[in-house]
Design a protein around this nucleic acid. Structure first.
Lengths: 328, 328
DNA sequence: CTGAAAGCGCTTACAG
DNA sequence: CTGAAAGCGCTTACAG
């Protein structure tokens, strides 16, 4: 293993000087720098991250915690973060919290590893984890939900997205529009519900409690919720699903019942995952810019790490886009 | 920041003893251990990973490099690795190599970070990177392709999978079966091609060079390849696509030409990504156990890190499964 | 612009 | 079974 001392010797300078060249934290004469750099290349020197960390403080690692990697939305968030982090030579570690007993333990684990900053979708996180996160004092960006104690926060405007897709259904002549959400406790669900209701009200349509059903954010949840909505005497003529996976489940249910989409019932999704355009009929949905979301998260974090921002909590709201396909 | 010294003081022991309790590398009297553990809990002590690393050697981080995270196969590999690594408190860092100029730089970057071990799909990797990897002397598992210099290797039996799906088409009465691959240079392509040819030969069918086309492993690649195959006078009555994304592109092409699937042409995929069951008609394909693959990779790595295995290169071949749907 | 020296928080021989 | 001390490979005041 070649260390900083070997480089210093080879270049005929002190270890301090080598360190300055490597970190760039102090000006070094051009000639000296050149000699040091030559030695580094020749010897194949790489700084030992543990040692730098011990003195310098940072690990150069940022963590992302997602509810699941099986929803293709989240890998894309990771890709967006990498877009920003790789040029800065910061490592990204992604944790699928569903694999852990709960994401609380993921946070604890990551904090023990001294990650420099963290992004997490804090759905269902216990207070104690949020507190632990806060005590750690590292930059944190919340994904999709305003952090309880305040703090940086990236989301898409779910209210407006859901309003847009619901309004689209109204314009197409639908009058009895149901809402099929994922977990009710989760903020995006609440916001999408709010947008849906706002659109109904704006059109002078009644907002009926029994037209709103909550299940899980999965295809199976969509099947179950659709069963509730479709097996009634007065079934709705449209279903606004709170994400694409749910909408896919709704399509399964319509197929099983011999209902035609959109003739008998229109169906819309949310996110625009790849499957949305593949299913039959292709799904009308709201594009949720996952990769952009990832980029925004990483940028917020870096600005804090660089000390360019302090105190003020910032919110980045990314806009969505209605994508009309054949299901509506 | 509470350090090992604070714990030692609080428990009335030496720092060595605290270290032994934390690492478990030396027996400690039960009573002493209890006092130390109490102090650790009370003070909220966490070992500093940089310091441990500096002395102990390992970073507790394992890297996975994938060609892309947009193919849902790869996030699942990551999830499988986490299944094994999380209980061992090892961090996984996932790199999407498409975001980097090339995966060569990803390897260099990760090696500089002193990851303990690495998994990579070495498609298109330059010799120099493989050499760098070898020089680093860390455990390495190759994904889907035998590493040129020999070494651990996890894959599914692509030859047998492709033979199985091709045989299935023959049994359904197809006689003129084309193969549409991704990049020709890549080993899975070659193996799937081999399986396809073996099935034809076994059935006494001719193996025709012009029935084999190579494009990219994307939906767009499938569209282009299908155009080549379908716009001929004597078009095939079935297309074996080398992965599901390609098959989805083939379906696009059939739709654009008004061809019925499977009546006019049967189409099969490979991998069984979620979209395969969603597209219309649902795709006959070969299930590729991504999560199991991830688990196998992590296990191989851990066995090396634990020193349970030395020298011998090991190969794990996971079996595939034919899934018959409506496209064939 | 550069160097000598202290020290970051641990682990690990070494000694008892 | 436990402790005192050296040292891992860096960075950073401090001094010149």
């Amino acid at each position: 293993m070649v260390g900083i001392r070997d480089v210093a010797e080879a270049a005929g300078v002190s270890v301090s000087t080598v360190s300055q060249v490597v970190t760039g934290r102090r000006p070094v004469a051009a000639a000296t720098r050149a000699r040091v750099e030559a030695a580094i290349t020749r010897l194949g020197y790489r700084a030992h991250p543990g040692a730098s960390q011990l003195r310098g403080g940072r690990t150069g690692t940022i963590a992302l915690i997602v509810p699941t990697l099986e929803n293709p939305f989240y890998p894309l968030v990771a890709v967006g973060m990498q877009d920003v982090l790789v040029p800065r030579n910061i490592l990204l570690t992604v944790t699928d919290a569903s694999g852990m007993d709960r994401s609380a333990s993921a946070i604890h684990r990551l904090l023990s590893r001294r990650v420099d900053a963290m992004v997490a979708a804090p759905f269902g996180l216990p207070e104690s984890s949020l507190a632990e996160l806060h005590d750690a004092g590292i930059p944190f960006v919340s994904l999709g939900k305003a952090p309880p104690g305040g703090g940086d926060f990236v989301h898409t405007d779910d209210v407006s997205g859901a309003r847009e897709v619901t309004t689209h259904l109204i314009e197409r002549g639908r009058r009895r529009i149901a809402f099929l959400g994922g977990e009710e406790s989760v903020v995006p669900t609440q916001q999408r519900l709010e947008g849906y209701q706002a659109a109904l009200r704006a059109a002078g349509l009644p907002v009926r409690g029994d037209d709103v059903v909550f299940e899980e954010y999965t295809r199976e949840g969509g099947r179950k919720g659709a069963a509730t909505l479709l097996d009634r005497d007065d079934r709705p003529d449209a279903i606004v699903a709170a994400n694409d996976l749910i909408a896919l489940g709704v399509l399964d249910a319509t197929r099983a019942r011999g209902l035609r989409v959109p003739d008998d019932v229109a169906v819309t999704g949310y996110d625009d995952i790849e499957a949305a355009s593949l299913v039959s009929p292709p799904l009308t949905t709201i594009e949720n810019p996952a990769r952009e979301i990832g980029r925004a998260c990483a940028r917020l974090l870096l600005e804090r790490l660089d000390g360019m921002v302090t105190d003020v909590a910032r919110t980045v709201a990314l806009s969505t886009r209605l994508i009309v396909r054949d299901s509506s």
